[in-house]
Design a binder for these strands. Structure first.
Length: 804
DNA sequence: TCTCACACCTTTGAAGTGG
DNA sequence: CCACTTCAAAGGTGTGAGA
């Protein structure tokens, strides 16, 4: 959703203050070397038009290099050279073109070319780290046709949707890699019209059923289903990927009529448990690719060999990626190479700081089809079979192994990587095929000189980063969003000038895991603008929110520069107060008094004076107070939701076992969000929590209040992260807005679209957006302008209009 | 479908300046 | 020597004409 100027880029690195002699960012977009190791992977990706959250599962077959394999040599530059502050740009050129001339530490590692053999037998790592078995590696095309390796597998599925104590039991009785978070589900596949066609996932002959991408899998109604909660009557769209080892499960909540959040993604986890092939199975969970203001693009990745090892990965600018993904991301490829936009950057946490790792970005092909864009219907269609690359085009950092400490302290950036359509691409480039789909994948592997030892290996796939390679943009909306969000394309914007951004960066959450090598030192300054270090240039140019900008440009209107009007601010304040009042009244709890909502948001640091810095500090303080209060309120609300959900579920199923145990229910919910570790429990932020439909449904408002009035005492407030990870909050969350909109008619239209994905509501889809019901965008409140002299909370008349 | 020249813009680092 | 400013070159971007 935003791009940062060079100075602002350092903000990202405030997350992990760089250790001495380290560069500000871990730029891995340098010249490439061949693979050290080949990995066969199957990848689940979302469809560009998908509207729900995404499950990614990755199966890996790791090939081992055998003794005697020739060694490839790479040169590793010294840290000092990499981190020279005034050589950044030149270093980039050097890294791309003059790498061979650079003298540095020489690291050797095994290299083995799969393409040389085409079909060969290699050893395969099994679940047990100390054993291996023979496995046949076949080319991608062959594997696609012989996609029967998924047979004889159960699909374990966990959905956090409220009350699933059954699922907890099931989970405990099985060997899920996430204890207490999965259930065994027999899937029934049905087309979208609701007709149900049973599918035996254990039957090889059912592959054809999977090949229908628009199939739905439904929880069966028979008694064999371990879960028969009607509240859990969720539909799953099951899509099979050609590679065969991957299953794409897209939850579609079909029971939530009246749900204020529409298709608010629910927390889901799926993984495949191989039974015959002993494939190492890895799974990820994903918050969903909905561009919310929460924490999209955060994955928990298990070590392929040791499932107790966990890596947390966050996609930088995930919300921007999601914005593109919702439209069908296109990436330009040219002869000379074109950068990816958004740039591929990730934050990693959980690596052993004392080990060396190799980081690679490769581009998987979800399918080998060629696509064509239909302008009239604004959609991509299959136009035939395309080229299947024998190996996924990959990009390996030339800098050789990097310590886990360095990786975790910095943003792993591939921003200088270039995509080309020339087969014999130069170093620093990746050769792709036009009009075909690709899915970037980050592979982090422990570096070891000996190939006989098992190494940590993480494969990270953010589904929202998939794209179609093109030589010219096909979708005008993509062009619009690129122009709106890419600073280099500012010349094509309406104003022709840089517009100061009114949107803060989407909040990130501190990556943390039991093995985090990060001390997480100054949590007050991470993930936000360091007040002591305002950008040296004239402004922090946080680029235009993709969604809003797209909305504007779609309407082909030249909208006033998103300045917050007095009414908007008052409405925002009113909504917050209404929400808080309601919360107090309904729950009968004495909540802390909500602080004032910050009026202003800093957009310019030009001619900044010390007294204005003080004002800003006060401003941030107030924001933090508000966020703290808001988070506490949300916690209470969520706990109340659990109670309501449980009660409603009980009445529906009319079960004799309708006695609820609040503690166990909380445990069910928390189990999916608390990561056990030898050092305690790691809590995933509350934005991962499932959102109940009932509490926000007007239809069940009476029920809600009834149950809320009988809600049991709640445990003390839990403030896992949010108390320390304040971002300048300038808007209410969707939950908060939804609540308030019920009480304040007329506000929803104005505000909801800022949080909702265009895919969440057909009314907000690009083609449906010509509706005049959304009259004007609401911008964020602004911080005290450096040129203004008023207090941060003073009258909005101090707001200055940014020039168009 | 692809290439290329182009205008417009950002980024970058060297040079200049002053304390 | 350091911090800061200025400036010009390099490079990134989508456009639109043409192949």
């Amino acid at each position: 959703m935003l791009s940062l100027r060079a100075q602002a880029f350092s903000v990202e690195n405030l997350i992990r203050p760089s250790p001495p002699n380290s560069c500000s960012a871990l730029d891995l977009t340098s010249s490439s070397v061949d693979h050290q190791e080949h990995t066969i992977s199957a990848t689940a990706t979302t469809e560009p038009s998908s509207t729900s959250s995404t499950i990614t599962a990755v199966s890996n077959v790791k090939t081992r290099s055998e003794p005697g394999v020739p060694l490839a040599t790479v040169h590793r530059s010294s840290q000092q050279e990499r981190g020279h502050p005034k050589k950044r740009r030149r270093a980039s050129i050097d890294s791309a073109e003059g790498q061979v001339e650079r003298e540095g530490e020489e690291v050797k590692f095994p290299r083995k070319s799969l393409s040389e053999h085409g079909r060969q037998s290699v050893s395969m790592v099994e679940n047990k780290p100390d054993c291996s078995s023979e496995y046949e590696v076949v080319p991608e095309t062959t594997r696609a046709k012989n996609a029967n390796t998924s047979s004889s597998r159960d699909i374990h599925l966990a959905m956090k949707s409220g009350n699933d104590s059954d699922s907890e039991e099931n989970a405990r009785s099985s060997d899920s890699p996430i204890p207490g978070s999965k259930i065994l589900v027999n899937l029934t596949v049905a087309p979208r019209d609701g007709e149900t066609t049973p599918i035996d996932l254990n039957n090889n002959n059912n592959n054809n059923n999977y090949n229908n991408s628009n199939k739905l899998a439904k929880y069966p109604d028979d008694d064999s289903a371990p879960m028969r909660d009607e509240n859990f009557n969720s539909f799953l769209k099951v899509k099979r990927i050609d590679h065969g080892d991957l299953l794409f499960l897209e939850p579609h909540l079909d029971h939530n009529e009246g749900l204020a959040f529409g298709n608010q993604p629910q927390f889901c986890v799926a993984y495949r448990q191989p039974q015959k092939t002993s494939l190492v199975t890895q799974f990820c969970f994903c918050h969903g690719d909905v561009p919310c203001r929460g924490h999209p693009g955060i994955l928990s990745v298990r070590d392929c060999h040791d499932h107790s090892r966990e890596l947390l990965a966050e996609l930088v600018h995930a919300d921007l990626w999601s914005s593109f993904h919702s439209l069908g991301t296109e990436m330009i490829i040219t002869k000379s190479g074109r950068r990816m936009f958004p740039a591929f950057k990730v934050r990693l946490s959980g690596l052993d700081p004392n080990k060396l790792y190799t980081v690679k970005l490769d581009f998987l092909q979800p399918d080998s089809r060629k696509y064509r864009y239909i302008y009239h219907s604004s959609q991509w269609v299959v136009s035939g079979s395309g080229d299947t690359l024998q190996e996924p085009p990959s990009y390996v950092t030339q800098e050789g192994p990097i310590s886990g400490k360095d990786i975790c302290y910095q943003v792993v950036s591939f921003e200088r990587l270039k995509l080309t359509n020339v087969e014999s691409c130069r170093p620093g480039q990746v050769s792709l095929v036009s009009m075909q789909k690709f899915q970037p994948r980050v592979v982090v592997e422990e570096h070891a000189l000996s190939s006989n030892v098992l190494r940590e290996r993480f494969e990270i796939i953010f589904p929202q980063t998939s794209f179609i390679a093109v030589t010219a943009y096909q979708n005008q909306q993509i062009t619009t969003l690129k122009i709106a969000s890419n600073p280099f394309a500012k010349g094509f914007r309406d104003s022709g000038k840089s517009r100061q951004m009114l949107y803060p960066p989407s909040p990130s959450f501190p990556l943390s895991s039991p093995w985090s090598c990060l001390p997480m030192p100054n949590v007050h300054n991470i993930f936000g603008f360091d007040q002591k270090r305002p950008p040296s240039k004239d402004s922090v140019d946080l680029d235009i929110c993709g969604l809003e900008n797209l909305y504007k440009l779609k309407k082909l209107q030249r909208v006033d520069n998103s300045l917050m009007k007095l009414e908007d601010e008052r409405a925002l304040r009113g909504k917050a107060n209404s929400y808080l009042t309601n919360l107090n009244n309904v729950h009968g709890r004495n909540l802390p008094t909500a602080p004032d909502i910050p009026t202003l948001y800093p957009v310019s640091y030009k001619q900044q004076k010390s007294e204005q810095l003080t004002q800003q500090a006060q401003f941030y303080q107030r924001q933090q107070l508000y966020v703290s209060y808001h988070n506490q309120a949300q916690q209470i609300l969520q706990q109340q939701q659990q109670y309501v959900d449980k009660t409603l579920m009980t009445s529906v199923v009319n079960s004799s076992n309708a006695q609820f145990n609040e503690g166990s229910n909380t445990a069910v919910c928390n189990s999916a969000f608390e990561r056990p570790s030898p050092f305690g429990t790691f809590r995933v932020p509350p934005l991962f929590y499932p959102i109940s439909s009932h509490l926000y449904s007007q239809d069940t408002s009476n029920v809600k209040e009834t149950h809320l009035s009988r809600a049991p005492d709640l445990p003390p407030l839990l403030l896992p992260f949010q108390a320390h990870t304040y971002q300048p909050v300038t808007r209410l969350s969707p939950q908060l807005e939804s609540i308030c909109d019920d009480r304040i008619p007329g506000l929803q239209q104005e505000t909801s679209r800022h949080f909702d994905s265009p895919r969440q509501s057909p009314d907000r889809s690009p083609r449906a957006d010509s509706s005049p019901k959304v009259a004007k965008p609401i911008s964020l409140p602004r911080a005290p302008s450096v040129t203004s002299s008023g207090s941060p909370n003073s009258s909005p008349t101090q707001l200055s209009h940014s020039p168009l």
